[in-house]
Simulated assay, not measured.
Amino acid sequence: MRRLIRIVGWLALTLVVLIVVVPVGFRGAAALRENLSPEEAAPAGALFATVDGLEIHYQVWGPQDGPPLLLFHGTASWSETYRDVAAPLGEQGFRVIAPDMPPFGYSQRPADQDYSRAAHAKRVLGFADALGLRHFSVGVHSYGGGGVIEAAFEAPARVDSLILLDVALGLGRTEAPTMPFAALLNLRWPRELLTASTFTNPLMVGPGLRSFIGNDDVVTAERIAIYARPLNVDGTTDAVGHWLFSGLFNDERKSLAANPANYRTFTPPVLVIWGRDDTTTPLQQGEEIAALFPHAELAVLDGVNHIPQVERPHDVVRLIANFLKRILPATR
């Protein structure tokens, strides 16, 4: 009996050590890895635009005089993750521009650590201003949808069209989102241990992508490397930890993008693209969003989960190109 108690005791101690030591190890690895400024870490010849004092990294595809299409990413993504749709759309004559939105990618992070929808919207419009774009079409995926829609509602006259890819909005939410263990994670070290073990952990990129993609074959080593590439930017774990509070779990019930009335008065044409098998934002949400806009069309992709631009880029290119070619002459 004593032997059994000792064994159980050692197992319990080992478990406790693993729970503590492993996250500490991931945080230490992040500290060693995150040692480059955004400019140093970015690819050679990278483009940056100054937006509200921040250097925002972006990429461009297509002709200089093509109709501008801004593409904004979602959680733990950056401009390069749009490459499979951006490059073909550029070849079809569109001027495709994809920025990295803080705290992700190679863009600088704001000192106030504000990643709310209002702050995101300000950066969206500020980015367009920095590039001299008075009018533009804009597409967005998942979490990024809240801030981009906020920007579109603030300046509808500037938006030629809006393209929504499985956006995560939480429409109809009646209570503030609650973060598990929020009181504990509001402390720096617990928050950074969690973030370094999950969002900024290169070992979690592959499993994370597979949880959002229907076909595991799409999650290649090259794809994983693309998503993991900016994780060497200085301060990434700290910034993403703050984003959990002021971004992902922020109370946005009073935001413009949370008010259904704003959707009903938005007159530019809207294309909603959704994966039929989306496990993060189920298709019903896409149907409800499309129904709110007065001029929206919904395209549903069979066999697609949450990231259509990665899972079925050819179909996304076809849908976007046909949509823009059909509506742009009437809107410009």
Rank of each mutant, 00 (worst) to 15 (best):
G172S: 02
P190Q: 09
D52C: 05
G105K: 04
P102W: 10
A76R: 14
L271H: 11
G241R: 08
G53C: 07
V96G: 08
A151R: 08
L187Q: 15
N305Q: 09
G90L: 02
P177V: 03
S142R: 01
A196D: 09
G66A: 13
A49L: 01
G25Q: 07
V317D: 05
T280A: 04
P268T: 14
P313K: 14
R188E: 15
H73F: 03
T174I: 14
N259R: 07
T267C: 00
L125I: 13
E222D: 08
A225N: 01
G53D: 05
L4S: 08
G9P: 01
V310E: 11
S142D: 02
V270S: 10
E154I: 07
E175F: 08
L256M: 08
V22W: 13
F72G: 06
P156V: 00
Q64R: 15
F266I: 07
G146L: 02
F127R: 02
P308E: 00
V233A: 05
T174A: 14
W189V: 09
G208Y: 11
D217M: 11
R223N: 03
T331F: 09
F266H: 06
L301H: 12
L319T: 10
D129C: 02
T14K: 12
L324Y: 01
F249I: 05
D52Q: 13
A290L: 03
Y106G: 03
N215E: 14
P282A: 15
N305A: 12
A98L: 02
T81G: 00
